[in-house]
Design a protein around this nucleic acid. Structure first.
Lengths: 149, 149
DNA sequence: AAACGACAAAAAAGGGATTTCTTGTCATTT
DNA sequence: AAATGACAAGAAATCCCTTTTTTGTCGTTT
């Protein structure tokens, strides 16, 4: 019984070239969890998940350099447990990769979180309409929107 | 009884300068929903929500030009109804603004959607571990279409 | 007040050249 | 096979300079 995937197997299973796996290992992007006595690579389950994630990011035209940073933060989540995976999602857009963990969204690169609900803004504004019942002609406001372009 | 906020009120309520409101109006970023007979601006409820959203984006170091594009897509959601607001969220990161509507995430700029769950990847990999109980040698064929350009 | 116009400083976007990073391919070694 | 090393093409990032946007401040006008 084997304890991991060889470079070639990992390549076949992820669609990445051996050259890439080598380079990625050498540069620390994805280092196989195990090694044979002779010093040969043996990729583990998590490795494959990460490799496939990287593959998809590449397909989405995310540069390797950006992926490097992304995987770092992704690595912070993966080790956790098995459940989190189900709650984990990646959102990839033109320029950014976000890691979603439940309700929260983190920039996979900076790790910063920046989410805010529109409803919150609406609530704030709404609150401003009622309170100031002052100079009988200033505030009184209207309710309805007629949105602009 | 009036129907809207004056420039100065809007300024006070959003923290934006009158100069900005003027410029934004002139350049079409946020055009007051109404006008007085004399041609003076009267900002409406939605205007304030949009202005405050813009304000927060500015605070997050999103450039005005980017905000211009963001608000365009935001405008596509706001007009909808009243409920959506509660489900709407903005995620702002270094480079991108995403509009979240329920489960979906849209790039506020391009409108493209690109989300994928990690669990999915894990499931795929997991499926690959069980089936191949073959000749103790190695995998024969590759599953993947192969290489990208 | 609010709108306008003008001038200037600050911020952001663009463009082009240069440098660094990735990946393929091939040969050699373990 | 897998790991290494080397050469080269292509992709991406970085830097620097120029152009465009934004915003503040002043004066005038409505």
């Amino acid at each position: 019984m084997q304890s991991g995937f060889t470079r070639q197997q990992a390549s076949a299973l992820t669609g990445l070239s051996c050259r890439q796996l080598d380079y990625w290992r050498k540069t620390g992007l994805v280092i196989p969890q195990q090694q044979t006595a002779g010093g040969h690579s043996r990729y583990g389950f998590i490795d494959l998940v990460v490799l496939r994630a990287a593959r998809r990011l590449l397909d989405a035209d995310i540069s390797l350099q950006r992926i490097r940073k992304c995987l770092q933060s992704l690595a912070r989540f993966l080790p956790a447990s098995k459940h989190p995976l189900a709650e984990l999602s990646l959102v990839v857009t033109g320029d950014v990769v976000l890691v979603f963990h439940g309700e929260r969204a983190f920039d996979a690169l900076t790790g910063q979180e920046w989410v805010f609900p529109i409803a919150e803004l609406a609530a704030e504004v709404e609150k401003l309409q009622q309170p100031p019942p002052q100079q009988g002609e200033l505030f009184t406001a209207e309710k309805h929107p007629g949105v602009r372009a």
